[in-house]
Design a protein around this nucleic acid. Sequence first.
RNA 1: GCGGGUGUAGCUCAGUCGGUUAGAGCGCCAGAUUGUGGCUCUGGAGGUCGCCGGUUCGAUUCCGGUCACUCGCCCCA
Length: 412
Amino acid sequence: MSKLQPARGTRDLFGEDMRRMQKVIDTFRQTGLAYGFEDLATPIFEFTEVFKRPLGDASDIVSKEMYTFTDRGGEEVTLRPEFTAGVCRAFISNGMQQNLPCRLMSHGPVFRYERPQKGRYRQFHQINAELLGPADPEADVDMLAFAWRILKTLGISKDVVLHLNTLGDVESRAAYRDALVTYFSAHKDKLSEDSQRRLTTNPLRILDSKDEGDRVLVADAPNMSQFLNEASLDFFNRVKAGLEAVGVPYVHDERLVRGLDYYTHTAFEFVTSQLGAQGTVLAGGRYDGLIAQLGGPATAGIGWAGGIERLSMLLAEDPGTPRGTIVLPMGDAATVKAFAVAEALRDAGHLVTQDRSGNLGKRLTRAAKANARYAVILGDSELEKGVAVVKDLDSGDQREVALAELAASLEA
RNA sequence: GCGGGUGUAGCUCAGUCGGUUAGAGCGCCAGAUUGUGGCUCUGGAGGUCGCCGGUUCGAUUCCGGUCACUCGCCCCA
């Protein structure tokens, strides 16, 4: 094993891993186009403030997971730990409120300093979608239908359950938070060490604690639904009705909360049981106050992010590479002529490689291993006749074809 | 950040109760088969046994540290 390792929690992506991830990205983009989304690429680093303010100083991401450094000009910058804050910053910077609604899709690497595990890396990749402008619950339904269609297209929807909850509007959420703090404070000595900390950092998180002692207390804790005001309740009911109308299955999970401060109303996670502790595969929610908080015009928003590595691990099989044609020139004259033959095939839309080394048997072996569909054998004797031998690598059949008819004789 | 497991060939793994040349399967290369693959047979290349240190006459093996991966917690995609 070489001493040259990639930095902890990072890895090189190639071969099957890369193909699987690329399939997730391709499916995401194709589906996004069908829902009217446009591509957006924001920088992978921003001024630290862009992430610090919306995520909240108390969040783990800000307090201990960000790759933050001072650049040579003395600026405090941070490698993005998520997409939403940067997308909202771009929305403000570019005056996109002139053009609502904004449907923006992005994908790429994000960075968090965490202890790596399977499905959890320090540099990982997300697909991300944000819908800015609409404040109606039907917009949430649209976003969930979009996500669900990706999972269906990837063939992994059967492995995933949508957990849905509402955090209510700012007023409801604050009231609930106060009630939880009051309730849990009365039992503080019985809470786990982690949850005692959460009491100040993020009390909602106590609700999904895995500690058995905590769970006993949680069972009798007040429910969010008791604290929803009329508007929040109506909002959530319309989201649920919409999901039923559009045919996206879900479970209402009262204990689902989100770690980030900017969420309001709808919160959701698509969860799988197949990735151990890293079961959340795509998640998001509504964040109506975020853009204003960043200093932009008050604009509603809802979005989600999916972990490309995690999604790609659920794919049943290697997507493979497209099958093509391989041109095998035998002899000096053929080697020169092969370029014109290959280019003409590419002009006609074929996928073409050449193999010039080794004897014919060697080359056919490699062609079979590369899963090529056809071999075009071009020897000096064929050249004299203006033909090539086309070998079907599945059936083994082969025949001579005039060079002018070569492209038409191959199935695309 | 906390607790546990693992680290031997490109891959999956045996093995050495501390002792001379560390093995298998798959993969790779070559030949049998001078321009016809996927099968078969034969041969070959490839390892400072993760790294550093300690104990020992001697360490891949025991001990410590470290790095990486991995399981759970935390957190999250």
